[in-house]
C-alpha cells in the first residue's frame, strides 16, 4: 500500500495544485437544527442503532454541541457549536495531535488538501488517536454496523461502511473531493472551483451557517470570513492550528469556545448522562 502512496506522490508532486480546506461556521446563524448531522450520516453511511442515546457509544462525525452561559433565569443563554473534525494542521512543535500518536499511520495530514485522513484498513483500533484528539471528534466502532432489511438500498457507494474495531471520523467528505477532482481532470482542469467541492453538511445547512473552501485562496469566501473580528477557533491555545473557524458576536460564546472541552470553565454546561 505504501508503494502506491509514494508512486502517486511522485506523479503528482511537481505540478499538483494544493489546497488548505477549512470552514468558517457562523454561530450567529447556526440554529442547532441538526440538518448537518443528518446530512453527514446520510452521505457517509453512518449506521444507527435502536438506542443511540449514549453519546459515548454514538458514532457522529458531525456533532452539534449545545453550550450554555450557565447563568440563572432569565439571564440564561445558549449557543450551538457544530463540530466536525477540525483537520488540525499543527504548527511549530505541535503536530496534528491524532496523527502524531497513531502507530499504524492510519491517519495522516495531507499537504495536498489539508485534510486529515483516516485509513480504516490500517487502523487496528488502539484508540490512541481518540485520546489525543482534544475535540473528541473520533469515534470507535464497537459493533459491526447493520441496517434493517431494505435500508442498505440508500447506502452511498462512494463511501465504504466501516467494520467493528476501527476508529472513524469526519473526512470533509473526501469522496466529494475525489469526485470533483476526477471531473476536473476529465475536463482537462487542474484546479477545483470553490463550488465544485463542498461538504455534505455545508450543502445541507438551511441557515447557510457553514462556509467551506480553500483557506489560502483569496477568492474563496472562507478567506475573508475567517478574518472577522468575531472569529475564533476551538482551544486555539493548544497549538493544534485547527482549520474550522467560528464566528460569534456573543462574547460569552466566543470565550466558551476558546476554552471549550479541555478546561470546562464553570458555566459552560454540556451535561452527559453516560
Amino acid at each position: 500500500m505504501k508503494e502506491v502512496h509514494h508512486k502517486a506522490d511522485e506523479h503528482h508532486g511537481a505540478h499538483e495544485k494544493t489546497y488548505k480546506y477549512g470552514m468558517v461556521v457562523d454561530l450567529d446563524k447556526c440554529t442547532g437544527c441538526g440538518a448537518c448531522m443528518v446530512a453527514c450520516m446520510a452521505e457517509n453511511n453512518l449506521s444507527f442503532r435502536k438506542d443511540n442515546s449514549d453519546r459515548l457509544r454514538s458514532n457522529l462525525w458531525m456533532r452539534v454541541y449545545k453550550i450554555s452561559n450557565g447563568r440563572p433565569f432569565p439571564d440564561t443563554d445558549i449557543s450551538f457549536i457544530p463540530r466536525p473534525c477540525q483537520h488540525c494542521e499543527g504548527e511549530g512543535h505541535h503536530h496534528t495531535p491524532c496523527v502524531s500518536v497513531c502507530p499504524a499511520t492510519a491517519t495522516d495530514y495531507s499537504h495536498e488538501t489539508g485534510i486529515v485522513s483516516q485509513v480504516y484498513t490500517r487502523c487496528f483500533g488502539c484508540r490512541y488517536c481518540m485520546a489525543a484528539c482534544p475535540y473528541h471528534v473520533r469515534v470507535f466502532n464497537w459493533w459491526d454496523p447493520t441496517w434493517p432489511k431494505g435500508m442498505e438500498k440508500y447506502l452511498n457507494p462512494d463511501v465504504s461502511v466501516r467494520m467493528r474495531g476501527v476508529v472513524e471520523k469526519c473526512s470533509f467528505c473526501y469522496h466529494r473531493y475525489q469526485r470533483a477532482k476526477n471531473k476536473a481532470y476529465a475536463e482537462g482542469r487542474r484546479e477545483l472551483h470553490e463550488d465544485e467541492y463542498q461538504t455534505a453538511c455545508t450543502q445541507a445547512c438551511p441557515a447557510g451557517a457553514i462556509t467551506f473552501g480553500d483557506l489560502k485562496n483569496p477568492e474563496h469566501k472562507v478567506h475573508k470570513l475567517k478574518k472577522s473580528r468575531y472569529a475564533f477557533r476551538l482551544l486555539e491555545k493548544l497549538g493544534t492550528n485547527p482549520k474550522i473557524y467560528y464566528v460569534s458576536t456573543r462574547d460569552w460564546g466566543r470565550k466558551a469556545g476558546e476554552v471549550y472541552a479541555g478546561e470546562e470553565p464553570k458555566g459552560v454546561t454540556h451535561v452527559t448522562h453516560a
Binding site: 500500500m1 502506491v4 502512496h5 508512486k7 502517486a8 506523479h11 503528482h12 495531507s110 485534510i115 485522513s117 483516516q118 485509513v119 480504516y120 484498513t121 490500517r122 457507494p157 462512494d158 463511501v159 465504504s160 461502511v161 466501516r162 467494520m163 473526512s171 473526501y174 469522496h175 475525489q178
Partner: peptide, 12 residues
C-alpha cells in the same frame, strides 16, 4: 493512485 481512496472506499 490516490492513497486516500482507501479510506473512503476500500472496505466495501
Amino acid at each position: 493512485m490516490d492513497d486516500m481512496t482507501i479510506w473512503s472506499q476500500e472496505l466495501w
